[in-house]
Amino acid sequence: MGHSKNLDETALWKEYKKKADAGSERCIWVKKVYEYATNYLKDVRRNFGNYTLHDETHILNVLYAMGGLLGDQISNLTVGELELLILVASLHDVGMVYTDEEQKAQYEDTETCKRFLREHYPEFMGSAAEEWTEDMRQWYLRSLHSERVAEVLHNEAWKELISQRPRDVVPLQCIVSVCEVHGYNPSDMDGNHDLDYLNANDVSPLFCALLLRLGDLLDFDDTRAPKVLCSYVGDNEKSIEEWKKHQDSIGFVYPASPSTEALPYRAHCTHPGVEHAIRDFLDWIEVELGNCIRLQKSCRKS
């Protein structure tokens, strides 16, 4: 089964429609959020022209991967969990959109800049953002994107739509928390009470967070790096390697029913350097799968 071309084709949306009723207020609002996000995320390329796509293609690919991991167990999810997964797939990258004013404010945040340089570029400690390379500035802004979700959803662009959230939809704070932790270190998720089970909504935010993290990583094929856009990446060596890595990847195949067998993956490598980069990325996915298995033990048995 190939990738979905729109939300209606995704396994998660089909199951959600069955359980929430396609004509219900909550179902209509969730779809509006998805549609607004796909348009909003087009602006990611304003600041991240060298990055693989973070638009509707990415959202659909994440939904596809989540559905693939769930397989025939998708019917065991509650309506709130299905809803939450669709919302966080749509919203987890909104923090990568910056206005000029927002960029300026982040570069003027001296404490956050210091923390970033201390961790990644100690040789630049004490330097102003104007002295950083373009790669450094992009990486700095990207490193903040998961923690900006709440801020973005309260800005003028989103305020009206968010204020229309039906009361039976999962709480906004839950949506934000699951989006935020897709950028956390796995160790920071241990004992995170923002991910505690929501009895009122019958939702496991932690389980949804694990699926988002995996779905985000497993979106690894050529649909995110079309050749027509690769030509605009420029001569940035790291970006070119990233694009070629995606272009040579055919992607994952998901079994009809979840199992402990190895997840089938295919690629057609055109260069040994690209193959090396792909193998490194697959190692990262393997580590993340292990982390998620460990954290899943903190979820409810269901």
Rank of each mutant, 00 (worst) to 15 (best):
G251P: 05
Q138V: 00
E25P: 08
G215S: 09
N185H: 10
E9D: 15
I59V: 08
L198M: 12
Y51I: 04
S163W: 07
Q106K: 11
E15C: 09
D221T: 00
R26A: 10
P264M: 11
Y16M: 07
D109L: 05
D100F: 07
C292Q: 05
T112P: 10
N76H: 09
E237W: 03
Y16I: 03
T112M: 12
W13S: 04
E180L: 08
D168G: 00
V274F: 09
R224L: 14
L60V: 01
H246T: 01
D188F: 11
E180R: 10
L153D: 09
D216R: 06
L198N: 05
T38M: 13
H276S: 07
D72T: 06
S239V: 05
V33C: 09
E156H: 13
D280Q: 11
L141G: 03
Y34Q: 11
K104D: 15
K245A: 00
N192H: 09
N47Y: 03
L144V: 01
V97K: 03
V176P: 07
D168M: 12
D194F: 11
K245W: 03
L69N: 01
T10H: 06
Y51P: 06
L217M: 15
D221E: 12
E286L: 02
A277W: 07
E119P: 04
L161V: 00
E130W: 05
G49R: 07
E15D: 12
Y140H: 01
D55M: 02
Y36F: 06
H54N: 06
R266S: 14
K32R: 15
K19E: 15
K5L: 15
T223P: 04
L70V: 05
S231W: 14
E101C: 05
E35H: 08
L218W: 02
Y16G: 00
P205R: 04
N39Q: 13
H154W: 06
E56S: 06
D216Y: 02
Y40T: 05
S239E: 15
E242N: 10
S187L: 11
S249W: 06
W158A: 00
A256H: 09
D109C: 02
R137K: 15
S75H: 13
F220T: 00
K17H: 09
V44E: 07
E102A: 08
L41C: 01
W158R: 02
F220P: 04
E134A: 07
H246Y: 11
G80L: 03
G290M: 12
D8R: 08
D202M: 11
D248L: 05
N185T: 06
Q103N: 14
Q173H: 11
G2R: 14
D235F: 05
G2I: 13
A225V: 02
V88Q: 01
G80R: 03
D135G: 00
V94E: 10
F207M: 12
A89I: 03
P255V: 02
R294F: 01
S90N: 10
Y184S: 04
Y40W: 11
